[in-house]
């Protein structure tokens, strides 16, 4: 049930964040993304918070989803504890890496 709840909540969060992300990255000028463009955007704290939350929810959603897909197979279902921990670790590692990237635009 925990996976199910994580999946639902992160899905609702993503509906908001992903819409924002898609509109601002693809349909609002400037259309060519470069370091300066991202830096300008990330200089406001609001954008930083939005991007951090977005990163977290998308990782949770992706790994909860992959976990569900994999454990649907009976052979994998028997190892679901190990798979769950592996997913958690991937989320943490990817989150640290992504957060570091967001931080790199501080220069």
């Amino acid at each position: 049930m925990l996976t199910f709840k994580l999946q639902r909540w992160s899905a609702i969060a993503l509906l908001v964040f992903l819409t924002i992300h898609m509109i601002f990255m693809h349909y609002v000028p400037p259309f060519h993304i470069s370091f300066d463009v991202v830096q300008a955007r990330l200089s406001t704290p609001t954008w930083k918070i939005i991007d951090i939350l977005f990163l977290f929810s998308v990782l949770v959603h992706a790994m909860a989803g992959s976990y569900q897909v994999i454990t649907d197979f009976e052979s994998a279902f028997n190892y679901r504890k190990a798979l769950a921990w592996a997913s958690v670790i991937i989320v943490i590692l990817a989150f640290v890496y992504g957060a570091k990237t967001i931080w790199a635009f501080q220069l």
């Binding site: 049930m1 996976t3 199910f4 454990t71 649907d72 279902f77 679901r80």
Partner: peptide
Amino acid sequence: SQADGVAR
């Protein structure tokens, strides 16, 4: 509500 219940 176990892993093999409604969430599946």
